[in-house]
Design a protein around this nucleic acid. Sequence first.
DNA 1: AGTATAAACCAAAACGTTTTGGATGTCAAG
DNA 2: CTTGACATCCAAAACGTTTTGGTTTATACT
Lengths: 337, 337
Amino acid sequence: MAVTIKDVAERVGRSITTVSRALNDYDDVNEKTRQRIKQVAAEMGYQPSSIAQQLRKRRTDTLGFIMPTYGPRFSDPFFSEFLAGVGNTAAKSGFDLLVATRPPGEEELDAYIRNIQSRRVDGFIIVRTRRNDPRITLLQEHNYPFAVFGRTEKHNNFPLVDENSELGMQLVVNHLVEQGHKRIGYIAAPEDLMFAQYRWQGFKTTLAAHKLPLNPAWVMRGDLTQRSGKRLTHQLLSLPEPPTAIVASNDLMAIGALTAAQELGLTVGRDVAITGFDDIPWSENTHPPLTTVRQPIYQIGALVTEMLISTIHGETPAKGRVLLQPSLIVRASSAPR
Amino acid sequence: MAVTIKDVAERVGRSITTVSRALNDYDDVNEKTRQRIKQVAAEMGYQPSSIAQQLRKRRTDTLGFIMPTYGPRFSDPFFSEFLAGVGNTAAKSGFDLLVATRPPGEEELDAYIRNIQSRRVDGFIIVRTRRNDPRITLLQEHNYPFAVFGRTEKHNNFPLVDENSELGMQLVVNHLVEQGHKRIGYIAAPEDLMFAQYRWQGFKTTLAAHKLPLNPAWVMRGDLTQRSGKRLTHQLLSLPEPPTAIVASNDLMAIGALTAAQELGLTVGRDVAITGFDDIPWSENTHPPLTTVRQPIYQIGALVTEMLISTIHGETPAKGRVLLQPSLIVRASSAPR
DNA sequence: AGTATAAACCAAAACGTTTTGGATGTCAAG
DNA sequence: CTTGACATCCAAAACGTTTTGGTTTATACT
């Protein structure tokens, strides 16, 4: 068995109380004793049992992150970067990270309930908010700390970070209009995802601001994968009067769109413009490179984690609601006509 | 505060012992009492405190996974897929997953030590083995359960999964030779990574089997990123007598190589062949699509997790050492000449 | 000498479980 | 009426900490 505080206490001939207090730098222990205790503890390789500590301190110093995964071969570049942001920030504040992967739905919610009721973590990080998000409802009912990436329709009396998607889309549409495009199509994200709404709003509004028509036939809805981007683009470009530019609501679908356009013998950037949203690393190296909107995922992960830790500590986070400004990355997929 | 076993006990007018035994289906409690206890527990939303359970049971039912991350904007498609395999398998056996992100080195090893000494997890999952891997040394010294993805040079008396990289490279080289290539270059991975060795071995051996020359000038060493793949390919193709095919030891570098070749005005697949290794999702959609070797990352993650859980349970895993057979995926980047 | 003050230490309680080793009551058999 | 056997229950210990509320001893001050 591992070495416990009792072993150390016996070794130095002091009580476990004194050992504990020495190691935690209380000032009611003699300096010499403290030195000796610290030395012996180090020699013996003593580390307090985190479990016993958690039980006694009534906190776990652990954050929960349940990743919504779609399908088994799940490989979303979003998550590894976000995870790095969360993990590094948590570690900096002495927090551990408990990660699980669940498809959205009942199983997912069960995981939340069990983790709450068994007090396994001190709080949760929520990503990819959905309409009427059941995770948020649940956590609020239980009065459990959490922080969110992605706006919601509810009263936001909880810490939240989001990108300004409307602005992002506005930048995209403005850019396309500058390039002379007048027939602009759109590939939307699944309706229940909150960001789908905001991006769509931004698109629609900006189009209207330019007094450009919004042909319903030019609007498709995909499931965020390349495959669906490709399929829908095939449809769009086969219309009698196809759009000259296609705005996809994420990079993966835009990349699928690139493929589709090329399969139809079109040169992207000249015959048709295609744009994405997210700026995943891949987008820099597509053919042609993809015009897109950059979201600083790593920083968002870090920020949302800081906010969660503040609320766990009982502080109201300095900023309760942050809207980050995205930037347009212009690349060859929307080159001047 | 959350509801404890004591609350349930008081509510049903039984001792906490009886409640505990009822919920755990011991047979020394009256069937009626059990029913009632279970019902009340459910109504009250009682879940045993996982921490108290862990303390008492002397196990955490938690696996540790410390991801070696290079640099802050870290986004390796390998990890999200692997993580999904690990996470889902762990959940199936009732294990949680504690994830951390550390750059290889001292900090990383510290994290292992602390987690071991504070008995935070029951075992570790190790990936991307390195030469003389200090993580393995450490875990063996402490006699701590772990399972590994990637072979090592030590006696393997621990569970281990790897792909047969030699075979993978053999398939690649055979394929290129069939296409008539005689001058084949190589972009190696960092020397301290074990898989770098095996892939290099496979390459070298197969070349020799075909009695083909191995010009030292055609061998470069990269750091697994696109950037280095691109840079090194520039160098390779600028040689007075450049190779006609370039074998990269992972997909990301191969993708960098594609870019470099195109920048030099070459048509990949016709003027020069380029191959990768891993078959990340991206590789299917490069221009041209990348010939590569498929590793079933998700399954590997699942398998290595099963093995770890077996060893934690004190069983010797059914198969202590698994070598998976990769398959060659031929795409246009190595089209017939 | 007596008393207040400070320094150094510690026993015991508490956190919420599971498990050990009975205790109690009932019923049937002798 | 006694004895066993069985069913049902439970008090207490243990897991390894931290914290509370002390006690003891030495020192300084009247």
